[in-house]
Simulated assay, not measured.
Amino acid sequence: MTDLPVLPGAEPLYATGSRTGVLVSHGFTGTPQSMRFLAEGIARAGYTVALPRLKGHGTTPADMAAATASDWTADIVAAMRWLEERCDVLFMTGLSMGGTLTLWAAAQFPDRFAGVIPINAAVAMDSPDMAALAFAPDAPAELPGIGSDIKAPDVKELAYPVTPVPAIKHLIALGAVTQMMLSRVKCPILVIQSREDHVVPPRNGKLIMSAVSSTEKELLWLENSYHVATLDNDKELILEKILEFIKKHS
């Protein structure tokens, strides 16, 4: 079967630098475009960076409808293995479901990461209507998209204009499993959370902070960005804080 063409701007990014590596993950229905500013900034600072394109993303909604949470975790593990071949120390950051995957990886491999930085991570969605769609026999194939929740004017996220409903159950399952695993996270953690987020409830920041076992943990509230904070008004602040965190814990 021929691979589907990737949307321009949705390409993954792999950059070789020092023996310290950073795994970067985009979110649900999004693409590496949402994390490229951070990934390129981390690479310019001299680190080795892996920003994979999660299966079913950056192609077509129908392609994503056939993807599963196991596909996405496998993509993260593959990127982690790529970094392990080149690096001695690993960090991870991700936005939204990418933040969920960041927490999942830190919990699944509790001795692997020197630190993690989830950004507006989704572990508790607080959406009964969305949950009802997961196994509804009469669920529609698609819903309106959730991309581009951005405060800054004229900034757009490269994301699907629709949400493939078959993928929702995998998002919910990944969040639920990750929430149950949070006590396994023991590495240093910087939780970044937008105060105003129209996609993921901001209470996730405090929930994550209270559930992880990390002795070194910090919650950074963003006051001038919505959900896609990595493209929003606080993107420079996020990059600055990530680089400070990596330097401190390398």
Rank of each mutant, 00 (worst) to 15 (best):
A211H: 09
G115A: 13
K217N: 07
D111E: 15
P161R: 14
A67Y: 02
T178R: 02
K235S: 13
A152Q: 15
F109E: 13
V116Q: 03
R184W: 03
P166Q: 11
T100G: 02
C187A: 04
S70E: 15
P144I: 12
F109N: 06
P164Y: 08
P128C: 10
T48P: 00
I117A: 13
N204M: 03
N120H: 09
E157M: 10
S127E: 08
M209A: 05
V6E: 01
A50C: 08
G17V: 08
F37M: 05
E236G: 12
G145V: 10
M92T: 13
S70D: 15
L174N: 01
D154N: 14
A121C: 12
A122L: 15
R86V: 08
K55C: 12
M209V: 11
H170W: 01
R195P: 02
L231N: 05
D3R: 14
A132G: 12
G115C: 12
K169N: 11
P52M: 12
P161L: 14
T178H: 02
A66Y: 00
P140Y: 14
A79D: 04
L38H: 11
F113A: 07
H249C: 07
L13G: 04
P5C: 14
A107I: 00
A131S: 15
A62W: 10
A167G: 09
V116D: 02
I119R: 05
P52F: 07
D111W: 10
L51V: 08
P144V: 13
A69Q: 08
V200M: 02
E11T: 15
